[in-house]
């Protein structure tokens, strides 16, 4: 029997705004299954987002939901979590949201290691505003603001998260739906700040403009399927072999002091003294 999503959805909000072929729905479903598996009390789940197609997701979910300003979701979420550490705080963000306008918040959230989970719906483009270049747009690719090809290296969300100190970092694609659910679940269970880079597809604003790789929305998923390399295999490959590949897997999983707990310890320490 299939999974019953209904009890997690605000069905009166349907139809959703996403285009056909958009993979944001795939991430939504994976997130729902992960939360279900985690057996969280719905009343204690808060899903926070910024602005963008990806960020519309919380509106469809029957939790406490907070649709904020572009790039700032993590900062809002930080306030929610610190104010009530009992809550399970999950942030969903587009690539623009997470690492362009929200880049500073991203870095500092990774560094603080507050017990929250960030899922980046990384479609390499600004979907909502019609397909402008994002920091994860691949070099040479066409967007409405890189009509002659995007210049420069895309930001690697995983490397950025690791460098900034996130304690659980994983990547997979929207083709690998079971793995996506499993990584999100691991992120939810992880004590500390977890980042899941969910490689996503936006045919409307990105794929369409890059026919050299994609002829259809389905092609974008097939591309993921055919070009992933597991992290263990990737370690044996050189940079030439890795060109154009998507490395997936769990990149980091470590237990380090968590901010809310450390803060509580500090309170106890100073209150005992006075």
């Amino acid at each position: 029997m299939g999974f019953n999503y209904h009890s997690y959805l605000r069905e009166k909000m349907m139809p959703h705004i996403w285009c056909s072929g958009c993979t944001h729905g795939i991430v939504t479903k994976a997130l729902i299954r992960a939360i279900d598996k985690a057996k969280f009390d719905k009343n204690k789940v808060v899903v926070v987002s910024g602005i963008g197609c990806a960020s519309r997701m919380p509106g469809y979910l029957d939790f406490n939901t907070l649709h904020t300003t572009h790039g700032r979701a993590l900062a809002f979420a930080t306030g929610v979590k610190l104010a009530n550490p009992e809550l399970h705080v999950i942030v969903v963000a587009g690539d623009g949201d997470a690492v362009a306008i929200g880049g500073n918040h991203f870095i500092h959230s990774c560094n603080r290691n507050i017990d929250m989970t960030l899922v980046v719906l990384n479609n390499n483009i600004y979907g909502m505003t019609g397909g402008q270049r994002s920091p994860t747009t691949l070099e040479g690719d066409i967007s409405s603001t890189s009509v002659y090809g995007s210049i420069g290296n895309p930001i690697d969300v995983v490397n950025l998260a690791i460098g900034a100190g996130a304690t659980f970092v994983a990547r997979t694609t929207t083709y690998h739906v079971h793995q996506l659910e499993s990584y999100i679940y691991s992120g939810l269970m992880h004590k500390g700040f977890s980042v899941i880079d969910a490689v996503s597809a936006c045919y409307t604003a990105y794929g369409r403009r890059n026919k050299q790789r994609y002829k259809s929305a389905i092609d974008m998923l097939n591309y993921m399927k055919n070009n992933v390399v597991n992290i263990s295999a990737a370690r044996e490959m050189n940079s030439e072999e890795l060109k154009g590949k998507i490395i997936i897997g769990i990149f980091k999983d470590s237990l380090e002091p968590e901010y809310c707990e450390e803060y509580q310890k500090m309170i106890n320490r100073v209150k005992n003294k006075t």
Binding site: V46, T69, A75, F76, G79, V80, L82, A83, N84, L87
Partner: peptide
């Protein structure tokens, strides 16, 4: 942003 989040909580 954080104070708004905290107030909502």
């Amino acid at each position: 942003a954080a104070i708004i989040g905290a107030s909502l909580a």
